[in-house]
Design a protein around this nucleic acid. Structure first.
Lengths: 144, 144
DNA sequence: TCGATTTATTTGTAAATGCAAATAACGAGG
DNA sequence: CCTCGTTATTTGCATTTACAAATAAATCGA
């Protein structure tokens, strides 16, 4: 126990890394990746989002997202459509196959959530999530 | 605000990503990277650690760490030494230049911590950090 | 002590990532 | 209704990353 594990970014990173590593491994057999799940989950919330919007909400760089979406399109999970109103923008839509995959990933995500939060009371969980949102908000504007 | 931002891994990831992005950008001018800071911080806690040990505590893959340490060695920040007792193991030691860089990075890290936790009481901060450690512990064994 | 197994690190190689430049379309001002 | 600056996305390219194989040394057991 040194000062290292008193640093918040460190604690945040290692917790996130562990969950990400486990989840990634588990969903590999479904032909999915963690990043794909993030995109699918974002589209599950609201379908027909722009690339930039998705980049913002998933924290995936736009150029990385472009190539990820290429792969997802190849797999038939999503389709690109030019925005009717603004021809610069691309709208992403989930396909039926994409929705089916999402429905298979969802219970896995929920299970991981349960494992990560084992022993946490509902109130503790709520407090933690609120703190993480607040923290995210505090870093606003400092983003590159 | 959809269910997406009720998922803990999502909240964890985006908060971590924001801090990481800002910090990375800021330390670039010092010739450092976030990963280098993680290694230096780990060595600040305890010098002369093994590669595997460092990999574990920094959440950086060993093969990635090898190449990162190559770069840090080139920059004269650290040195590799074979362990006298076990010739398979490599012990990493910080150099004087590495220590100087560490001392310059430390206040930056502290500032980021302060910004991230702006508005948090000491008790809230403590609770959050404890929760993150607990969460990390909960994922133990599920690691690949 | 020899051989087999395990452990620690590095290296090979392919995929993921991120920055910067390129492309394309919008919108404001003259 | 052009031209200029801005915005959205993609592409080029160099770096980072990760998995798997290779290397090397320790340990265990016959």
């Amino acid at each position: 126990m040194g000062p290292l594990d008193s640093f918040l970014p460190y604690l945040l990173n290692r917790a996130g890394a562990r969950i990400a590593a486990s989840f990634s491994e588990e969903v590999r057999s479904l032909g999915a990746t963690l990043q794909m799940w993030r995109v699918l989950a974002a589209l599950r919330d609201r379908d027909g989002r722009r690339m930039g919007d998705l980049s913002e909400t998933t924290s995936i760089e736009v150029s990385t997202l472009t190539r990820l979406v290429d792969a997802m399109e190849q797999k038939g999970l999503v389709t690109r459509h030019r925005d009717a109103g603004d021809a610069r923008a691309v709208m992403l839509h989930v396909t039926a196959a994409g929705r089916r995959l999402t429905e298979r990933l969802l219970p896995i995500a929920e299970r991981y959530e349960a494992v990560a939060l084992a022993g946490f009371s509902a109130a503790e969980t709520k407090t933690l999530k609120a703190a993480l949102r607040r923290l995210y908000g505090n870093m606003e504007g400092l983003e590159r």
